[in-house]
């Protein structure tokens, strides 16, 4: 079980719990504003862009090259950017805070 906090662009804080699947799916199930996940999680649409709170950044692994290539050409991206369809919900993510970009 992992507790994940999303902070939307209008500063609403949404805390959700999940055990499996991707973080994007968890966000969509909980109607987190700004996470559309249009492509269903195959790293094609970039509608699940989040920036990891620096304090919890060490809970996440590295983005794959394909994910990095997508983010490299996103004007809103910074060093904490991730496409959350590429983050699997595991115990390791417990307590992570994600700022929704859109």
């Amino acid at each position: 079980m992992a507790k994940i906090t999303f902070i939307t662009k209008d500063q609403e804080s949404i805390v959700v719990e999940g055990t499996a699947g991707s973080v994007m799916e968890l966000a969509v199930q909980n109607n987190v504003k700004g996470i559309d996940g249009d492509c269903g999680g195959v790293c094609s649409c970039a509608t699940c862009h989040v920036q990891v709170d620096p304090a919890s950044a060490d809970k996440l692994g590295e983005a794959s090259e394909i994910e990095q290539d997508m983010l490299e050409l996103d004007d809103d991206a910074n060093e904490y950017s991730r496409l959350c369809c590429q983050l699997q919900v595991t115990e390791a993510l417990d307590g992570v805070v994600l700022n929704v970009v859109k």
């Binding site: 492509c39 195959v42 790293c43 094609s44 649409c45 394909i66 290539d69 997508m70 050409l73 590429q86």
Partner: peptide, 18 residues
Amino acid sequence: VNPHVSFGFSTHNCLGAT
């Protein structure tokens, strides 16, 4: 993992994709 560009990419990506 399927970063295809059938709906285009970036600023002008497909409005009708959804």
